[in-house]
Structures are given as C-alpha cells and as structure tokens.
Simulated assay, not measured.
Amino acid sequence: MRQRTYGYDPVKMSRNMTVAELEAMLPTVKDEHTLSADQRNGINMLDKKGMWKTDQVTWAIYYLTK
C-alpha cells in the first residue's frame, strides 16, 4: 500500500500523520535517494530531492514534538 505524502508539505503532514508514520518515511526516502559512492560530491549522501524530502519530514516531526 502506498503511503500518503501530502506533497511533502510539513504542515499538512503534521496535521494528518503521527510521529511514528513520519519517522517510518525517513528510511524510505533514504533508500530511494541515496547516491552511489562515485556520485557523491563532498558530504552529501542523498540527491537534492532526497535532501529536500528529508528536510520536510523532519520539520513535520519537529512541529509535532515541540
């Protein structure tokens, strides 16, 4: 079953998802957007879209836990 992402809008995700659901999204994003060793530039292990998605999910988690 596909999980709803609400367009990775942190406000919508925090209103409609639990912290556990949001935390479960992080490994999925990491698996989908990890760069191979020869593609890494500097310290980035995720591609640009993966970094953006991770940032949005972590902001939603922060918003729920503050």
Rank of each mutant, 00 (worst) to 15 (best):
E23I: 10
Y62S: 14
I61C: 15
G50V: 02
V29R: 00
S14L: 12
T28C: 09
Y62L: 10
L46Q: 10
K66W: 12
D9S: 03
N44G: 09
M51W: 05
A37L: 03
G50W: 02
D47P: 05
T54V: 01
L26F: 07
T54I: 04
L64I: 12
N41L: 11
P10K: 03
V19M: 12
V11I: 08
K49V: 09
T58A: 01
N16Q: 09
D31M: 10
D55F: 06
N44K: 10
T5F: 07
R4C: 08
A24R: 03
N41P: 03
L64W: 05
T54A: 01
A60K: 02
T18M: 14
L46M: 03
V11G: 05
M17H: 06
M17C: 09
R2E: 13
R40Q: 08
P10Q: 01
M25R: 14
D55Y: 08
D38Q: 01
T58G: 01
T5V: 11
Q39M: 13
W52H: 01
A20W: 09
Y8P: 04
N44P: 00
I43P: 13
E32R: 14
T34I: 04
E32N: 14
K12L: 15
I43K: 12
G50I: 00
G42I: 11
W59G: 06
A20C: 12
R40D: 01
P10N: 00
S36M: 13
R15L: 12
V19C: 10
A60V: 11
T28I: 13
T54S: 10
M13R: 06
P27R: 05
E32G: 04
T18L: 15
M45L: 15
R15Q: 14
G7K: 04
R2A: 09
Y6C: 00
D31T: 06
G7C: 04
Y63C: 14
V57R: 07
V29W: 01
G7S: 03
G7F: 13
D38L: 12
L26M: 05
M45W: 13
G7A: 12
M17W: 11
E32S: 13
W52P: 02
Q3R: 13
K53G: 06
E32W: 02
M45A: 13
S14T: 15
H33M: 03
T58S: 08
Y6Q: 00
Y8G: 03
D31S: 15
W52V: 00
W52N: 00
Y6K: 06
Q39Y: 03
K30E: 15
M25K: 08
G42S: 04
D38C: 04
R15D: 06
T34R: 04
P10V: 10
L22G: 04
L46P: 10
K66E: 11
G42Q: 01
D38P: 11
S36V: 05
M51E: 13
T65V: 07
L22A: 12
V57L: 13
W52S: 00
D47W: 02
T65W: 08
M25H: 05
Q56A: 14
D31Q: 07
A37R: 05
K48W: 14
E23P: 02
S14N: 09
M45F: 11
I43L: 08
K48D: 09
R2Y: 14
V57H: 09
T34C: 02
L22H: 06
P10Y: 04
D55L: 08
W52A: 07
D55T: 06
D47I: 07
A24W: 02
Q39L: 06
T54M: 11
L35W: 01
M45Y: 13
Y63K: 15
K49Y: 11
V57K: 08
R15H: 09
